[in-house]
Structure formats: structure tokens, C-alpha cells
Design a protein around this nucleic acid. Structure first.
Lengths: 232, 232
DNA sequence: CGCTCAATTGATCGATTTCAAGTCTTGTGG
DNA sequence: CCACAAGACTTGAAATCGATCAATTGAGCG
């Protein structure tokens, strides 16, 4: 077994990762993916629909086809922390125990493929490719979670939002024009802030001529270099 | 391949994880570990000695024999975030790219075993046990990083310190008497706080009769139930 | 067109940081 | 073994950043 370099993800030296946690199983082609498609079942979820809940039996692993999913935890008193957003190609729901440790819900309308965990295990046993993909997926998720912890622990509100925008722009196709798939509340809970603070940070970045807000969910990056400069 | 349940780690439902990230490769016995021992080299590090630095070629994977190691990142302006402490049995340095994404240093004097990554890869290719151990190690690291992100994003200073103490007590042998291996600065940088705030939180927990401070690094838990009650 | 919910904006409040002493530990050399 | 110095930790006061409370604006939808 070879411990893989990131598959389909730039192995660049640290710095703002995709906000989308991983996008391992390439969307096109055949091979192991063909196998996976055989094993999987396509399912549709409307926005805010719960996919699974913390503590549920972790019998399925999911891959995002379209839309965005959030993985999150809710504390006893209602505080919520989103661990990751999963965009197209992202894999989530792979657990180390028999139960999900986090909850997952659709952040936007989305299409997912669900794989029975036991099928995936069988597949991985016979197919080196699949096991490498899972390994790679985990390494990416780990890198993301660690990078996220750095932001949560040591960055200011403005830095958090700036890095979020940069991370969002990276995978987006449309150059520096971004269409956010999630609400301010989701962004706030991802960055460990309140919606008001997120809103003010957006406004601040606009006043500083780093971005332009064309609509609530449409952001254009005007000064990418400056934006990067904001993040320590 | 079977996606393993945690090996040597309770698969209990969420809640305060060990602060020590993983402790996968059991210390005793033979089998795969025997193999690993053949491949590995024992090395000693004094407190604060750097083990590797962000960006270095990630040619080695390490296992802790004794002592505690910190994995951390330093931002441009000096802010530091510790991602994890690794105690005896903990594995660290496994990367998804060719370079380390984090730095690692000895938080206390410690003894490590270093494995050449390429040897480990060869070993894993031939030995299902080893590949499962690595998989399990990654899943534990991921669970830890996500749990850590929740604390960093959504818990108050007192909750952070309380959960730190609980997590520290769990693996410790001496029941409710804890001997901290790391400085206040290390704790602060792990929890995303300042040393002053950590100090005040300790004092607050002592005044509330949850803990007793016998020395700077000696803590006795007086009221574990109450301590847990503090953490949402 | 009006309703409802999301987002913005303003004012105040509070937790944590920052700044500043002061105390306690630890290690070292006499 | 003690005295001293350097560093670690604690404690207090002031400042700051983000949260909370409150009101307004804006967008999506029946």
C-alpha cells in the first residue's frame, strides 16, 4: 500500500484549503467509480433536510453529486458548530465507530449517492484503488479539520471570513465571482461567529474594496492579493 | 478491507475525547508491532526540541513511547495553535502530501520511535493489520480534530478548560489526580486562549470546588460530575 | 401586494485579551 | 545548602473584539 498524495487536490504547502472538505471520487470515468455507482443509490434532499443525526447507526457513506451538505454538532444548549461543508465530489459519513459522531443535513437542495458501508468495505477489500481513495479521503478530511481548528482558535472574525471567501473561490469555476450555497447562519456556525459579525465582516471587506456584494449570496473578489494579505 | 472500529480506543458516543489524539499501536506484544519495531529507530528529545517543521519533507512517521509531543502551526505574526498533543502510544507525522503540514516539538522530554514512511508503506502493502492500524489511527485523529474544532468554535474559556481536564484525566492512571505534562502556554495555545485566561479558569474551577490545584501542574478532580455538567 | 424570513445596521454589554505588577518555581553557581 | 536570577504562573485593571439586544431593510414566495 502506498500512502497516497492527495488525489484530485493540490498538495500545495498548507494555506487556505478548499472549504469543501474533500472531493475524492472523481465524477467522471469508470473503474472503481463504476463499482461504486453499482453499489450506490441516488437520493435527493431538500434544503435543511436532515440526512443523518448524531448517534444514528453509521451504515451508509455518502458522496455529493450536486449541492452542499453540512456536517455539524449541536451542543445541549443549542450552540451549533459546523465542522465541514461537502460540495460535489465530497465524501462524508465514514466513521470510526458504529454510530455517526456528527449530524449531517442538506445546506442547499442536493443530490447524493449513498453506499452501504458494508458494501464499501467489501469493495475496498478487493480493490486497492478503492481503499486508497478512502485513505486519501480521510487524509484530506483530517487536513481540513486541522486547518479549520487553526482558524477557529487563532483568527479574528475578519480573517475568518476572508479565508472563507478565498477557500470558497478556489474550487469555484467562475473565477472570482462566487455564488454562496449556504446562509449567513451556516457561515457563522462554520466560523464560530454570529450572523451579525459575519455580516459586518462582509461589509468591512466591501468597504476595504476587497470584495463586492452583488446580492446576499453573490460575492465578487475584487482584490484577491489584498484578501490573502489579510490572513496571517 | 474492513473499516475498523477504533482499536484500543473506546467507541463511546461522542463526548470529551482523550486530549491525546490517538494511541493506536499497542505497546506490548508482537505481530505487526514487532515488524514496526524492526523498521523503527528509537530517538530521544528534550523538552521544546523541534521534531520536524512545517514544510519539511514528510519522510518519517513517529510513535510516542514516553512523554508528550505537540503538533502545531505558527501564523505569520506569531500566533500559535496547537492541533493535538500526542501521548504514549500516539502516532503522528502521517501526511497526505510530501511535506509536513504542521510542526511537531517535544512538549516534555520524550522518547519516540521513528519509522521511515516508505518502509511503513511497504509494510502496509503486505500486512493487512498494519494498514488497518493506519486507517484506525487516521479515523481517531479525525475524530479528535473535529471534536477539538467544536471546542474552539463554540465553547467558553471555562468550558474549554473543564473539558481539557476531563480529557486529560481519562487516559491517566492515577484516578482523579492529574500531572500535567505541558505548560500553561501549551494549554492556552491548544484551547485558543491566553495563559492569563487559562490561569483564571483554573482558579475559577478551584473556587467552585470542582478541582484542587496542588501545584502548578498537579490537579485533583474533586467533583467530576459537576465538571462534566459545566460542559455543554 | 403583502407576508415572512434573512440579512443588515446600530447601540450596548460582556467575555476575553492586553497591559502591568507581583509571586512562586526552578535551576544554577557560590 | 543557600542565594539569586530567569522564567512560569497568578492576579488586577483597562481596553477591545465580538455577542447580544433591538430596529430596519431587503429578498423570496404565496
Amino acid at each position: 500500500m502506498t500512502i497516497p498524495n492527495a488525489v484530485g487536490v493540490a498538495a500545495a504547502t498548507s494555506q487556505p484549503l478548499d472549504i469543501f472538505e474533500n472531493r475524492i471520487l472523481s465524477v467522471s470515468g469508470s473503474g472503481y467509480l463504476g463499482d461504486l455507482r453499482v453499489a450506490g443509490r441516488t437520493r435527493h434532499f431538500l434544503r435543511d433536510r436532515e440526512i443523518y443525526s448524531e448517534g444514528d447507526a453509521a451504515d451508509y457513506v455518502f458522496k455529493v453529486e450536486t449541492g452542499v451538505v453540512r456536517s455539524y454538532t449541536v451542543l445541549r444548549d443549542g450552540r451549533r458548530q459546523i465542522d465541514a461543508f461537502h460540495g460535489p465530489g465530497g465524501v462524508f459519513g465514514l466513521e470510526h465507530g458504529t454510530a455517526y459522531r456528527l449530524s449531517a443535513a442538506a445546506a442547499s437542495d442536493c443530490v447524493l449517492i449513498s453506499y452501504r458501508r458494508c458494501n464499501l468495505e467489501k469493495l475496498a477489500a478487493h480493490n486497492e484503488q478503492v481503499s486508497l481513495q478512502l485513505f486519501s479521503s480521510l487524509l484530506c478530511s483530517l487536513a481540513h479539520a486541522q486547518e479549520h481548528a487553526i482558524s477557529l482558535g487563532r483568527r479574528s472574525a475578519i480573517e475568518k471570513v476572508a479565508i472563507f471567501i478565498i477557500g470558497y473561490a478556489k474550487p469555484a469555476t467562475g473565477g472570482n465571482d462566487i455564488l454562496l450555497a449556504m446562509s449567513r447562519k451556516d457561515i457563522a456556525d462554520y466560523l464560530g461567529l454570529t450572523i451579525e459579525t459575519v455580516s459586518r465582516a462582509f461589509a468591512h471587506l466591501e468597504h476595504g474594496a476587497f470584495i463586492e456584494l452583488r446580492g446576499t449570496r453573490q460575492v465578487s473578489i475584487v482584490d484577491m492579493v489584498g484578501l490573502r494579505g489579510l490572513c496571517a
